[in-house]
């Protein structure tokens, strides 16, 4: 598309402004983590490394981080398996109700978190607890997996639509079994889509608050739940800023990696 120089410049300005708006609050978080003021007044009243020092000692935050990583891996693993299976079915077969599937899979992410949250919570209460499964990490993973499936599904489906099924047919015509074909033909084609989808699914689970609130046992504290309960405690709130600052910086690595591995530059789809 041949755009005028003015249009290009205008778009570049929009991009720059957009990024500025995205990053100013993150900058505020990072600055606040060095602010002596416990309630983050602006401009900062002084520079301190106290919060960083105390964050290093904070066992609660470390445990919560570990819990979040476990929950994220658990939910992502389920999502990878289920999302992949479903996307193959939808991409390679025609069957009755295929349209319904596409709505069903998007429902957990399209319905507000609080609806998903209270639905799962009351279901666990009435069906799982009587058989001895109480709220805990397991229920968090179950809950997160419901809305992570769609992410993997979308990524793999998009890839499958671009790679023709005829390659798989050729492989099987040449005598390769279903599993061999999957291993040597199909899997390599969707590998990067799986990675990108898995990463986004993990990110979604990692930052989920509302569904987690309703599905976690009180003993299970994911990082967002830890943040929620500590942001309101003046002695702890500045430490939350430190944790967030670390997350912001650290998250560049996986996002960048996904970019490198992924074939399409979008680095995955939501």
């Amino acid at each position: 598309m041949r755009l005028s120089r003015g249009a290009r410049a205008a778009l570049a300005v929009a991009m720059t402004l957009g990024l500025a708006v995205i990053y100013v609050p993150l900058g505020v978080v990072i600055v606040s983590s060095f602010n002596t003021d416990k309630t983050f007044g602006w401009p900062p009243s002084g520079f301190t490394l106290e919060w960083w020092r105390r964050a290093v000692d904070n066992v609660g935050a470390r445990d919560a981080l570990a819990t979040s990583v476990k929950a994220g891996f658990g939910a992502t693993a389920i999502a990878l398996v289920l999302g992949t299976l479903l996307s193959f079915a939808v991409a390679r077969y025609r069957f009755f109700g295929r349209d319904v599937v596409s709505i069903l899979v998007v429902l957990p992410i399209a319905l507000p978190g609080i609806v998903t949250g209270i639905a799962l919570s009351s279901a666990i209460q009435t069906t799982l607890r009587p058989i001895g499964i109480d709220f805990g990490l397991f229920t968090v993973i179950i809950g997160h997996a419901t809305f992570c499936v769609v992410i993997v599904y979308n990524n793999v489906l998009a890839r499958l639509r671009r790679t023709s099924g005829s390659l798989e047919e050729a492989s099987m015509d040449l005598g390769a079994g279903v599993f061999t074909t999957f291993r040597h033909v199909t899997f390599p084609a969707v590998r990067s889509a799986l990675f990108a989808g898995g990463l986004l699914a993990f990110a979604l689970s990692f930052d989920e608050v509302i569904v987690t609130t309703f599905t976690a046992g009180a003993g299970v504290q994911t990082l967002p739940i830890w943040i929620l309960s500590n942001l309101t405690r003046p002695n702890q709130a500045p430490i939350v800023n430190v944790v967030a600052a670390v997350l912001i910086v650290a998250s560049v690595v996986p996002v960048w990696l996904a970019q490198r591995v992924s074939a399409d530059t979008a680095g995955g789809r939501l």
């Binding site: 309630t39 983050f40 007044g41 942001l231 309101t232 405690r233 003046p234 709130a237």
Partner: peptide, 11 residues
Amino acid sequence: DALKQVQSFKS
């Protein structure tokens, strides 16, 4: 919660 109230009174 305490922190939000204190922030608002302070500002």
